[in-house]
């Protein structure tokens, strides 16, 4: 469970994130949507203690991430390509992360076999460095590593971007499967509304650093979201007239 109370991040008095209250339950598939610069990555960086909040703190499973490092044992994350190591082969990278997560060889093998279809035979067993892979394949490596070692919380920033359509479908089912089997809490952001609404069971819209909508997924969520984002655009062009 992740709890956030009055979390503020500001750069030189310009507030980029201001969340008065947010609670993410265990096992929830939490979807975060919003336009560019809405503060999605900032929120994730704060939950991962990669940046310092101007005010407030994040409590993950009872641990205040700004004070203790113990959250690292049960958290996996992939924010961007800088979360992989370019000069390692994918297999070496998986071994490295697996070691850090205290997985043995068979655990690692089991975990990665589930990703075989997702990898499409282009990742494992190749003597190719991650830096020489395509952007999409680099992303696949990062996502698979983030979900390793039975983490209780997994944070994925725009996991669907840069992936081909069939990989997007496969990733949807991988995420749902792990959540169902291991009770993993997923925090996922993205721009492709259909992917997010398909996977997540709760959707939060961020706009200019603030939560403007927080809804459980229903039959009509996708339609509502589309209307919301299209509406913002229409309203603007309307003002211009």
């Amino acid at each position: 469970m992740i709890e956030i109370v009055t979390l503020i991040k500001a750069y030189q008095k310009e507030i980029v994130l201001n969340i008065s209250e947010l609670k993410i339950e265990k096992g929830e598939l939490f979807g975060l949507v919003g336009n560019n610069g809405a503060g999605k990555t900032t929120l994730f960086n704060l939950i991962l203690d990669l940046i310092v909040p101007s005010k407030g703190h994040v409590v993950s499973q009872g641990i205040t991430v700004q004070e203790s490092e113990d959250w690292k044992a049960f958290t996996g994350a992939f924010i961007d390509e800088s979360f992989t190591i370019g000069y390692l082969t994918p297999d070496e990278y998986f071994t490295f992360i697996g070691d850090l997560r205290e997985m043995n060889k068979s655990d690692l093998e089991l975990h990665l076999t589930a990703f075989d279809e997702f990898f499409n035979g282009e990742i494992r067993g190749k003597k190719k460095f991650i830096r020489d892979l395509s952007k999409g394949n680099q992303k696949k490596v990062g996502i698979a590593a983030a979900m390793m070692g039975r983490p209780e919380v997994v944070i994925l920033d725009e996991p669907f971007a840069n992936l081909d359509p069939s990989s997007q479908y496969k990733l949807r089912s991988l995420l749902k499967k792990q959540a169902a089997e291991q009770g993993t809490t997923f925090l996922i952001s993205g721009h492709t509304l259909d992917n997010i609404t398909e996977v997540c069971n709760r959707i939060v819209i961020l706009e200019k650093g603030k939560i403007v909508k927080d809804v459980p997924k229903t039959e009509t969520t996708l339609k509502e979201l589309e209307n919301f984002f299209a509406g913002v655009k229409e309203a603007e062009s309307f003002v211009l007239d």
């Binding site: 960086n45 994350a77 800088s82 979360f83 992989t84 997560r101």
Partner: peptide, 12 residues
């Protein structure tokens, strides 16, 4: 440096 933030989320 290029993957420093990743290292900082790992358990070591």
């Amino acid at each position: 440096s290029r993957y420093f933030s990743m290292l900082m989320t790992q358990n070591f």
